Amino acid sequence: MQDGMRFIPSERRRGRGAATSDSGRFERHAREAVDDGWDRNDDLPPLRTEVSEERPRSLINYVRSPDIPFDRTINPYRGCEHGCIYCFARPSHAYLGLSPGLDFETRLVARPDAPEVLARELRAQRYVPEAVAIGTNTDPYQPIERDRGIMRGCLEVLRAFRHPVGIVTKGTLIERDIDILSDMAARGLARVGISITTLDAGLSRKMEPRVPPPKRRLETIRRLSAAGIEVRLMVSPVVPGLTDHEVERLLEAGAEAGASAASWIMLRLPREVAPLWQDWLAEHYPDRAARVMARLREMHGGEVYSSQWHHRMRGDGPHAELIGKRFARAARRLGLDRRLPPLRTDLFAPPPRAGDQLSLF
C-alpha cells in the first residue's frame, strides 16, 4: 500500500514514472518526508525537471559484456526525462548520489562538451574504430535534446570522422537528424533501433510517461526507413503477464512501418529497479502484480532478476522459451529475422584541421 511518507503524492508527480525518491545504495543516510502538520501536501508544487551540466574528461565508455554486440558507448546525458519505470539504467544515478527513482527522471545532467571531447578521443593515435552505441543507458533523444542539441553535435562529429554508429531511442526527435543519418546510412555507417513496448497507448502512458505514444513511434520507423536508414524494431522490454500477448501484433506493426529487422528483451529488474517496479505495479495494476512477479521469478530461479551473462536478457524456463519461440516464428513470417550486416569501419578517417600539413599523395 502506498500510504507511507516515502511515496510522493500523485498530484506532484504527474507525468513521472517512479513514486519515490529513495536514496541510492551508496548513501549512508536515507531521506524520508515527514508531515509536521504545518504544510499541506497539496500545496506543494509539481516536480520540475532540473538540468545541471558536467564537463567530461572522456566520453567513450568501453564495455566488456559478452552478451551484447558492441564494445563502446557514449552518453550525451545522465538520467532520462522519459521516466520509463522499467528502465534498467536507473541504478546508474546512484553513482551521482541521486535517487534511481524520481531523481533519475527529474534531475538530469547534460554534457555540453561531449562533441569536442568525442572528436579529441577519435583523433588519438591508438584509437581503433568500431561501431559506437548511443542510447544503451539513457535516451539521447529525450526532451531536453530539443534545446541542447548535444546528440546532434556528436552525430556531426561521427559523420565528419566517417565513424559507424548504432542508435537506440524511443524519441521521435531523431527525425530532426535524418539529414545526417541518411547520409551516414548510405555509406553503411549508421543504423537505428526504435523501442516499442506496447501498442496500448494507455499502458504506455503509465509505464513510460514522457515517451511519444506507440503510434507516433511507428511513424518514426516509417520516416527513417523512407530515408534509407535501416531500422530495427526493438520489442523491449517484454513484460510477462502485461505485454507478452502483444508480441505478434508489435512485429506486424513494425513490419508494416518498414522495419528491416527485430529483436526482443525480457523485463530486467536490477538493483533499485525491482522495488520501483513493484511499487508501480501495486499502484497501477494491483490485480496483476502477483502474476507478473511470479512469472519473473520463474524465469530467474526464484529471484526477481539474475545478472548472469546470456541469461539476464531473456530468462529461462517454459514461459521465457514460449515467448522466444513465438517471437522467432512471427519474425520469420514477417521477414524481420534477418541478420543485418556489420557497420563499416574501413572508411574511418579523421578530418583535417586548420594548420594540418596536407599529404602529397
Rank of each mutant, 00 (worst) to 15 (best):
R297Q: 14
S58A: 15
V239A: 10
G4M: 11
P351T: 04
K215M: 02
C154R: 00
V165P: 09
R72Y: 03
E219K: 13
E54N: 01
I150S: 01
H163L: 03
G241E: 07
I221P: 04
V165M: 10
K206V: 06
F88A: 12
S195C: 08
L189Y: 01
P66Y: 03
L98R: 15
G355A: 10
A19L: 14
R55Q: 08
G228Y: 01
G355V: 07
R25F: 14
G79W: 00
L199G: 00
P140I: 12
L59I: 10
E81K: 03
K170L: 03
F161L: 01
L334A: 06
L269M: 07
E121R: 07
L98E: 06
L118C: 08
R297I: 14
R148A: 15
R205T: 15
S92F: 15
L98Q: 11
G254M: 15
L267D: 12
R314T: 09
R187A: 14
R55M: 03
P237L: 07
R64M: 05
P352R: 06
P66H: 05
V165W: 09
N75Q: 03
A94P: 03
S263N: 10
T243S: 09
R40N: 10
G193A: 14
W280N: 01
G166E: 07
Y127N: 05
G258E: 09
E303K: 14
E246I: 13
